[in-house]
Nucleic acid binder design. Structure first.
Lengths: 281, 281
DNA sequence: TCGGATTACGTGCACCGTAATGATC
DNA sequence: GATCATTACGGTGCACGTAATCCGA
């Protein structure tokens, strides 16, 4: 049994070239390192160094030992990382969501139901969110459609409908409803944190330009002070009220009127039973 | 950086089941081990154990850590072994020989020429001795024929001729020379340490029986006190004198009259220059 | 009551740093 | 004289063992 710090010191020496430099790097004194290397040789029962009076260098065996030692150190670090990562996962629930609107509610709910656990959430436009469940990147997810594969369990949570906000003078402002493709080619104000809506808009309106805003209140400001069309949803209208100086027209595309599903792997259904029950009432 | 003895102790605990048993196994006190495991958890920043008041056991993370730790320990041991083995090889010359007769001379010669090196020799019937040179199992070899491949360097060393010793009353005792196949089907006394001769005899006399003797003087005794045929060579005759109560008849097979070659890899020719020079005089 | 884990406590020694020495450029 | 390695030496922190405590079967 040879302690790993000796190998660490050996590797540092190999990188630095002299004991003094390595000692400095390791924040120990030069004599301490000198003795460590003597001890290492002694415990291995093998000479690792060529010693001239005022110069020490690795011999062939030493070079070999350094290669092995580098390897061993890498393995130890990776091992420690993986143990910590495993433990972290035990104490965190990762939620992946295709929409921002439900995230706060889910965080509160999960925190309440799973006391002591860390709740980690990620808003993502990833179209294959279910694959992330399979990989266990997320243990629970909010999807914009019911997952069809058998290995998932899911319940509906909430629905949301997309609207476009047009200035009254806009040529399409008197429509009762619009398809996204009717709006293609125009320039829109768009909030950046909108999850799956983003891909939908870009797919259905390939020629449109989007002025993406990072900040919600900057976006509001711009909408209020420009004639540019923007989007909203019934969820936002219910929360913030309607934009009075705008005409709000429903979007008719099927995919723009979604029901969100909360899903997990079937094998984890029991773990999240409490969550599902909460929405089934 | 976590010292490896902590992982060693963890693994021992996993094998033993209790701290007390593991402590005994490790030749340390129980409190020492208890504190070590606490320290390990602390350094990892992770709980590894479930602690009841009078019972401690691994949790899921602990089990994982044990698997990783076993692995790490294996790797460290194998690393140390390989370093030692490499160093040993640096200080030993391994000679593989197809014949026993030259080994003592070679040991003296090599010891003299390569002071401080350990000379390790092996007598072998291996027909692919040259492959062992390629693998570096041996650095130098004594072969019963000149190696034909270009990657070897070799010089002739000595020649040896096989004879059969027959009792005067034997039906073949008046032959001037014999082929091995003429002797097939009979029963022979044979010394065990004869290298390549062994395979030759068994190949050319598939129906013969061989009473193999481990001890040279037991063999001599038996030869003197029985009517069983045996083998000898000119080298042995020159050394020990001829067996007076026996008829000694040369074996005519080409392979029974060999020239021994000392060989090494071409790439090591320089290293063994002194050896080759010794025989080229 | 015994076996097992943890806590308390005193101690020794392993390892460190400083200083001195020797050697090389 | 500057740099580098090794040896000498004295001090200390840390991990150890013993003892005590607590708990459960």
């Amino acid at each position: 049994m040879i302690e790993i710090h000796l190998f660490e010191q050996l590797v540092t020496f190999a990188s630095c070239g002299t004991l003094s430099a390595a000692a400095e790097e390791l924040h120990i004194s030069q004599p301490a390192l000198s003795r460590s290397m003597q001890r290492l040789e002694e415990e291995l029962g093998v000479k690792l160094f060529d010693r001239q009076k005022s110069r020490i260098s690795l011999n062939e065996t030493g070079e070999l030992a350094v290669r092995y030692a580098r390897n061993l150190l890498l393995q130890e670090h990776s091992m420690i990382d993986q143990i910590r990562e495993f433990d972290r996962k035990k104490h965190t629930i990762s939620l992946g969501s295709c929409t921002p609107i439900l995230i706060p509610d889910f965080v509160s709910l999960l925190s309440e139901l799973y006391e002591g656990m860390t709740i980690s959430t990620e808003l993502t436009g990833d179209p294959n969110l279910t694959d992330r469940l399979k990989e266990n990147k997320y243990q629970i997810a909010i999807l914009n459609e019911k997952p069809d594969e058998k290995e998932f369990y899911s319940v509906p949570v909430e629905s949301e409908h997309l609207f476009v906000c047009l200035p009254p003078e806009h040529p399409l402002a008197d429509a009762d409803g619009l398809y996204l493709r009717d709006l293609d080619g125009q320039t829109f104000l768009l909030y950046s944190q909108i999850g799956f809506w983003d891909a939908l808009c870009r797919r259905e309106m390939p020629s449109a330009r989007f002025l993406v805003q990072q900040e919600m209140d900057v976006l509001g400001e711009l909408v209020a002070n420009s004639a540019l069309p923007a989007f909203t949803t019934d969820y936002i209208i219910n929360r913030d009220g309607i934009q009075s100086d705008r005409i709000t027209i429903p979007i008719l595309d099927k995919e723009a009127n979604v029901t969100y599903y909360c899903a997990c792997l079937l094998s984890e259904r029991a773990k999240f039973k409490a969550v599902f029950q909460h929405f089934q009432r």
